[in-house]
Every structure is written in C-alpha cells, then in structure tokens.
C-alpha cells in the first residue's frame, strides 16, 4: 500500500490535491482512500490530508502514522511544530518538498534519513492556491504508476465544478510538477503494514481520577491564546514605513481583527508578527498608505540574510 500524507496551509488546495491524487490512483486501477484531516481549518493555518492506494481493498483508516511519502506544499511549515510534518517518517520515507533549496541541504538540515525530492516552487503567489495540486502531480510521478493521462483525467474530474479555466491552470501546474520530478519516478515504494510480531506495545495506563477542577475543560488564566503563533499562517507580511506613517493614532490598530497592532507611547504602531495572520486589512486602511504588503518568504529570506 502507498501511504501518502499531504501537508500545507488552508487555502493551498491540500484537500483538492489529495482528491486529485486519489482519483489518479483510482483511475490507474488502485483501491483508494482519501480524506482531509479534520480540524479548525482556516486560511493559512496548517492542515493535512491523506491518500492511501493499494491493489487490494483498504481496511486501514484514519491518520497515517507511518507515511511512505510526505508531500509538503509549503516548506515554511517545517518551522511549525504543531504541523507535525515529519511525524512518523523513517529511512524508507520520501519527503517531497515544494519549495526552494536542494535536496541534500534539506536532508542534512532536517536530519532526515529517507529520500528528499525538491519540487521547485516557482513564481511566488500565483500558485499559492495550487500547492496541493502541484504536490499531487509530483506525487503521482514519484509513485511511477500513474500516467499523464490518468493525472489529467483526475484533475478534470475533481475540478469540473470550477469551470474550464481552473481546470486548465491546475492541469498545467500539476503536469509541470509531474515532469519536474521525472528523474525520481518510482522512488516512492509501497510499504507493508505493521507486523503483529515484535511490535512495541502501547504504554497504556490506568487513567487516574483527578479533581473536577482540573478534569473539566476550563482555563483559569487570561488570554492564553497568545501562545498560539498565528503569525505562522501568514503568506503576506505587512510592513510599516515609519517615514510615511503619520501617527494618526490607531486606525490600523483598531481595525486589526487580531489585536496584533499595538500603539507605542510615541503613537507609532507596531505589528506583532508572532500573531499577525496576514489579512492585510491594515495595508488597505492606512490613510497615507504607509503600510505595504510583501511576501512572507521574501521577508524571511531578507531576515535570514541580515542575520549575523
């Protein structure tokens, strides 16, 4: 069985990607399961989807804990621990990275014992919504059992309701990805299920009875949500040009839904990048247009370059 986990952000078409891949396998004669991992999906927040494909009926269900392939539509998620991108990978796993850099560098940086394939993410945000489809196209080639025609048919089927132009764009992107990883065709192998001999027994415990005060889903502290780094959802970053900011007081701060712009004593606004989700409302409401939007990748790259 092929066990494939797609990771990305809400809005990058991860669920669509999983369905394209599922349909492509199905079209190639496989038994298939595909499903998004259900959670509080929000645009920009991390999410995952699963695809299983096998030549016999699939009885496994739910979370793929030991993936043969992790397809990552957005490599910045590797910095998000809660995304659990690399959970359960081993020396036989393949990591498909939709991003920049070369495979060996990533392999070393991630201390990843399996195979890394980089699918270059060309063109910044034109394809933000197509990361899932690009990963699906590449994954189809990595498995080596899906033809171009089968991939195209799967896309046509999955995107039928969105009209011909969406199908066309997606097909072009997915096929480009399919071709881009051609030399790795077949690197993805089917793995066997967990063996019932010599397995690691679960560390079951007898759950202790605990005080009702802690055994109820109650939070006794204020504003613990600040622990959630929603800044990691961001694909665009607002940047204040203080030379043009007229210290209007707090239009940007008041209109930021996320309480992520505070006003300093000198009436300068300051953006809390740990929590700014990148909605860009501040950019559009700033009267002197003193806030600009720049791609998060570029901003990060600039930060890395500036770091000593």
């Amino acid at each position: 069985m092929y066990r494939i986990r797609l990771h990305g952000r809400g809005g990058q078409g991860i669920k669509t990607g999983s369905r394209i891949l599922g349909s492509a396998f199905f079209g190639a004669g496989f038994e298939v399961q595909d499903a998004p991992v259900y959670g509080a999906e929000r645009r920009g927040a991390s999410m995952a989807a699963h695809v299983r494909a096998a030549r016999s009926p699939i009885r496994e269900r739910g979370v793929i804990t030991r993936p043969d392939l992790v397809a990552l539509a957005d490599e910045t998620l590797l910095q998000v621990p809660a995304a659990n991108v690399l959970s359960g990978v081993g020396p036989d796993s393949v990591l498909l990275l939709h991003g920049n850099g070369d495979a060996e560098t990533w392999r070393a940086r991630l201390a990843f014992s399996g195979t890394v394939v980089v699918l270059p993410a060309a063109g910044e945000h034109a394809e933000a919504e197509l990361g899932g489809a690009r990963c699906a196209g590449a994954a189809a080639r990595l498995a080596g059992v899906i033809s171009r025609q089968q991939l195209m048919a799967a896309i046509a089927q999955e995107l039928a309701s969105l009209g011909p132009s969406a199908t066309e764009t997606t097909t072009a992107q997915a096929l480009a990805a399919y071709d881009a990883v051609a030399r790795h065709a077949g690197v993805l192998r089917e793995s066997r299920p967990a063996a019932a001999v010599a397995f690691a027994a679960p560390e079951w415990i007898d759950l202790p009875l605990e005080s009702a005060r802690i055994a109820a889903p109650d939070i006794f502290a204020a504003a613990t949500s600040v622990e959630m780094r929603t800044g990691l959802w961001r694909t665009m970053r607002p940047e204040i040009d203080y030379a043009h900011c007229n210290r209007c007081a707090w239009i940007c701060s008041t209109l930021c839904p996320d309480s992520a712009i505070r006003v300093l004593a000198d009436r300068s606004p300051e953006i809390d990048l740990e929590h700014c989700k990148g909605c860009m409302i501040c950019v559009s409401v700033c009267p002197p247009h003193a806030i600009r939007a720049l791609p998060e990748r570029a901003a990060r790259a600039r930060e890395l370059a500036a770091a000593p």
Binding site: A40, L207, A215, A216, P217, D218, I219, F220, A221, A222
Partner: peptide
C-alpha cells in the same frame, strides 16, 4: 478570577481524558 469554562478540544486524546 477570569475563567473560560466548557472549552472545545481539538483531537480525540484530550476528549478521551475529559
């Protein structure tokens, strides 16, 4: 004494506990 009561959980593990 602020408290948020009866909060949602995400995931079966926390749900199982409560």
């Amino acid at each position: 004494r602020p408290v948020s009561q009866a909060v949602a959980v995400l995931g079966g593990s926390a749900y199982s506990y409560f």
